[in-house]
Amino acid sequence: MKGKRMHETIRRAAAGLTALILTVPAWAAGGDKAAPATPDPARDWDHLWNEVILDITIIGILFAIVTAWFIWQARRRPGNEVGASVPLSPASAVGWVVIPIFVFLSIDLYTAANGWVLWNTFRDVPANRMEVKLEAGMYSWDYTYPNGVRTQNELVVPAGTPVVLRMTSRDTLHSHYIPDFRVKEDSMPGRITYLWFNPTKPGEHIVTCAEYCGVMHGYMAGRIIVKAPDEYAAWMKGEEIRLAAANAPEPAPAATKPTKPAKSAAKKT
């Protein structure tokens, strides 16, 4: 317990320090956090991704053009058998260090500030979320809803409600990756990790495993099924009835559509 508290202190201190370093640029880039609408990290991700890709493309093209130009200018031809660069004066030698450092550093800090804002979106779970427990194992995703309903490889969620997964693993590392929502986070034995996503409209999204976990790693897939809130409610009702029946005298498989019966092994975390 002592270790835990100490660790918490270190964490706070370091987070504070980072915040201090990043505050100024973050102000410029960030809005106020108490924005009422639920954020949509996937959309923000696309936004920042495109921006950063654009930035690096510009930097790359600039460097490439200058290089190509120099190569063309300096190709060996008669009268140019030996290079003719002039030595730098001490002042310009220093300038060629200091100025690039400032330019690069400001690009870096700007990128970091934007990245930090998005990071907060990914890590600050909205208050109106639904909490689902996930136990990953070789090779399945086992979800447990707050009311005890369990599903395997299929997570049914209502559109418009943010969902947070509290994840652990019963054997090796796995990573719950939903490409459409641009999120993933590893799960592992002995620790609980989390991720959240915001399913805005009904539809189906693939879940795939993004951490090498064993021979069948490539086949460890599932689906997120986003239903309209009323359809979701109806589905959940059905599942609850089934769960109640299962908890009564004889256990019956609490399975969803085509998948195998859920393992009842999902352990308390």
């Binding site: 920042l48 890709i53 990245g115 990071w119 990573s175 990756y177 490409p179 999120v183 993004a210």
Partner: peptide
């Protein structure tokens, strides 16, 4: 982009 954790969340691994 990989250096930015919030972007890496989408493309890591």
């Amino acid at each position: 982009p990989l250096a930015v954790p919030s972007l890496t969340i989408g493309v890591s691994d």
